[in-house]
């Protein structure tokens, strides 16, 4: 059986990751190790969590520009409640997650019930959340609560003297749960249907309103979870955290093979999309002499390639009349 063409983008993504990792391994000594691979997860845990939420939004045919700001706001709220008010982290973290989900569902409800483009609504959400950070404080709030430092320093040992962080494990759990949700639950399939043709989904009797609101709720939840993970990584809350991060996230999803028009793509693709971004950064840091801005250049080029690839694949599909 020949390869189903719907799998081509994801196969390309996975191959690209393998090729880049292999190239790095040949060029740099010490690159080819389990720890380098694990570090991709450790350093990009928050990107992975956010990108998973974004995948659902884009699959449903929407976009969420507020994710970076929601991350910043989550770090800010966590830091101020824990450091300045002395609340216990085990109360603060669920509260922050709830806040993110509520923020997302509010945007989703506005998008659906007022029929406004997601681009505009989430752009407004982006400014709102970013602005709220500065209401809390204009400075960095450093977190030195023992719970946070403990989580940040915990290393989960793996064979071959490599390790994962707690954040990376959280990210992996999120990815696994998302893959199950996308492919084995009605909600997941409704998201694909919505992205395929909203009008049809409505006429087929699917719960379009509920699905749409839930998609943005999920993205808001993932962003705030990424915010929590980010506090473990940075040990601070700051209004300038994760500026422009929504674009990195969208790039990861697109490089992962998800169509921006919705309905086509895989969470697994997003996973590799994130890893590709991580590999580029790792290669550049191994190179040593290159500025880290080269990451942006390479990602920019990759985005072009993937968008062109998608165009070729979709226009070439045999949708004969």
């Amino acid at each position: 059986m020949s390869l189903n063409r719907k799998y081509i983008p994801i196969v390309v993504t996975i191959l690209l990751f393998l090729v880049m990792f292999a190239a790095g391994s040949f060029r740099y000594t010490g690159f080819f190790s389990l720890q380098v691979l694990m570090n991709l997860l450790v350093d990009n845990a928050f990107l992975l969590v956010t990108a998973v939420g974004m995948s659902f939004v884009i699959l449903s045919g929407g976009i969420d520009l507020s994710v970076g700001s929601v991350i910043a706001l989550s770090t800010m709220i966590s830091a101020s409640l824990v450091q300045q008010l002395g609340w216990p982290p085990l109360v603060v973290i669920p509260l922050v997650l709830l806040m993110g989900a509520a923020f997302g569902s509010a945007m989703g409800a506005i998008i659906h019930y007022f029929k406004i483009q997601p681009f505009i609504v989430t752009l407004a959400g982006m400014f709102l959340a970013r602005g709220l950070c500065y209401v809390i404080s204009i400075d960095t709030i450093t977190i030195d609560h023992p719970f946070y430092t403990a989580v940040a320093q915990t290393k989960i040992p793996l064979p071959g003297s490599s390790f994962l962080s707690i954040s990376a494990v959280i990210a992996l759990i999120v990815v696994a749960a998302a893959i199950f949700t996308a492919h084995y639950t009605r909600f997941g399939r409704n998201v694909y249907a919505l992205g395929g043709n909203e009008q049809s989904a409505l006429l087929m009797g699917l719960p379009v309103a509920r699905t749409k609101v839930l998609v943005y709720t999920l993205s808001g939840f993932c962003s705030s979870l990424a915010g929590v993970v980010f506090t473990f990584y940075m040990l601070s809350g700051y209004g300038l955290h994760a500026v422009g991060f929504e674009l990195d996230t969208i790039a990861a999803v697109v490089i992962g093979g998800t169509l921006l028009t919705g309905g086509v793509g895989y969470v697994l693709g997003t996973f590799f999309g994130v890893l590709i971004q991580g590999v580029i950064q790792t290669i550049i840091s191994f190179e040593g002499t290159l500025s880290s801005w080269w990451t942006k250049i390479v990602i920019g080029l990759l985005l072009f390639v993937f968008i062109l690839l998608q165009r070729v694949l979709t226009s070439g599909s045999p949708a004969r009349k």
Binding site: F180, H183, Y184, T185, R186, R189, N190, Y192, A193, G195, G196, N197, Q199, S200, A201, L203, M204, G205, L206, G263, V264, A319
Partner: peptide
């Protein structure tokens, strides 16, 4: 035709009423 072109034929027939066990779709 008011169906979703991106979903499989089987899904288009059953979406919304997929056979499930414990909430998991039985493909």
């Amino acid at each position: 035709v008011n169906l979703c072109p991106n979903l499989t034929v089987a899904e288009n027939i059953f979406i919304g009423r997929e056979p499930r066990r414990f909430g998991r779709i039985l493909w």
